[in-house]
């Protein structure tokens, strides 16, 4: 049987001899491909989600997965506050590949204006203003998870 597979931005169709001859079969096959977003129905993270822009497969893929995975599963009151070590490792890795990651950083400032700078200026510990927001976010997502 033919099947279709997705790995980030790359798709692979594996076609049997019969299906390869029939364009209609190929189209059906691709349309039937079961796709979902970042969070799989079982609550796990879909690292192949194109929405990650290849982050999970880049040179810092494993560091990214550690950090993002830790954050996703974090049960701390301030979600992700137990993941700072993982973030640090990821950030160190990013700095090793400035040609891959720094340009993303620039884009971000372009797109999001000043918000980035504001956040950077707020010291980590004194981030009280944002805490309530964080909790809101947590609640929202937790609701969805349920």
């Amino acid at each position: 049987m033919s099947y279709c597979k997705r790995d980030g931005k790359d798709k692979s169709l594996f076609l049997t001899r019969e299906d390869a001859k029939d364009p209609e079969n190929i189209k059906t096959l691709v349309e039937d491909e079961e796709t979902y977003g970042l969070i799989a129905p079982d609550g796990s993270i879909n690292w192949d989600c194109p929405c990650l822009g290849g982050m999970a497969n880049g040179p810092c893929g494993s560091e990214f997965k550690e950090a993002f995975g830790c954050f996703h599963y974090s049960k701390e009151e301030m979600k992700g506050s137990d993941c700072l070590e993982q973030f640090k490792v990821m950030q160190e890795c990013f700095q090793k590949y400035p040609e891959v990651y720094s340009k993303y950083g620039e884009d971000e400032e372009d797109e999001e204006g000043n918000s980035d700078k504001e956040n950077n200026e707020i010291p980590k510990e004194a981030n009280n203003n944002n805490d309530s927001n964080n909790n809101d976010d947590n609640n929202n997502v937790n609701d969805e998870d349920k």
């Binding site: 822009g53 982050m55 973030f87 990821m90 990651y101 993303y104 884009d107």
Partner: peptide
């Protein structure tokens, strides 16, 4: 934690 973050991501 001063991560250089991907805008696209």
């Amino acid at each position: 934690s001063r991560v250089l973050w991907g805008a696209r991501a």
